[in-house]
Simulated assay, not measured.
Amino acid sequence: MEVKVKYELEFPIHVSPSLLYQYISTPSGLSEWFADNVNSRGELFTFIWDDSEEKAKLISKRSGERVRFRWLDEDGVETEYFFEMKILEDEITKDVSILIIDFAEEEELDEARLLWENQISDLKHVLGSN
């Protein structure tokens, strides 16, 4: 089994934390920018892209702040890998950014980062934030 490395990316995003939270924590919000379609049954989320489907379990969330999903393998067993989206707000300037914590194989890091950049770009477009 390949070993994945943890990485973090931060993107400034000009929108209220409460609105942003709707887009990172709900199936309807996530399907507007993260995947072609997102279904959930309780804590179990199914992310659908063109011809692939991945399942993840919502393992923690804090309203207005963050969500963390743990990927499931093809048998529905939790893997050690997760991805987290955390909303950061500067106390003084009130600037908002989104912090992404994810895992990728070493040789796929650049590709993984690029994918997140594209997805966050889509998110900003949906939110009307540049």
Score class of each variant (00 low, 15 high):
Y23W: 03
I24T: 06
I24G: 00
I24V: 11
S25C: 09
S28R: 14
L30R: 07
L30P: 13
L30M: 15
E32C: 10
F34K: 11
V38E: 15
N39I: 06
L44A: 06
F45E: 03
F45H: 05
W49G: 12
W49L: 10
D50M: 10
E53S: 14
E53K: 13
A56W: 05
A56V: 05
L58G: 02
R62V: 10
G64R: 02
R66K: 09
R66P: 01
R68H: 00
F69N: 01
W71M: 05
D73A: 02
E78W: 03
T79Y: 03
T79V: 05
E80T: 03
E80K: 09
E80M: 04
E80S: 06
Y81E: 02
E84N: 01
M85R: 01
K86R: 10
K86W: 00
I87W: 00
I87C: 04
L88S: 02
L88M: 10
E89S: 06
D90I: 00
D90N: 15
E91M: 02
E91L: 13
I92R: 11
K94L: 09
D95K: 15
V96W: 08
S97G: 13
I98P: 06
L99E: 14
L99K: 15
I101A: 09
I101S: 15
D102F: 03
F103T: 07
E107A: 04
D110Y: 12
D110I: 08
D110T: 07
E111T: 13
R113S: 08
W116K: 03
E117Q: 14
E117V: 08
N118Y: 14
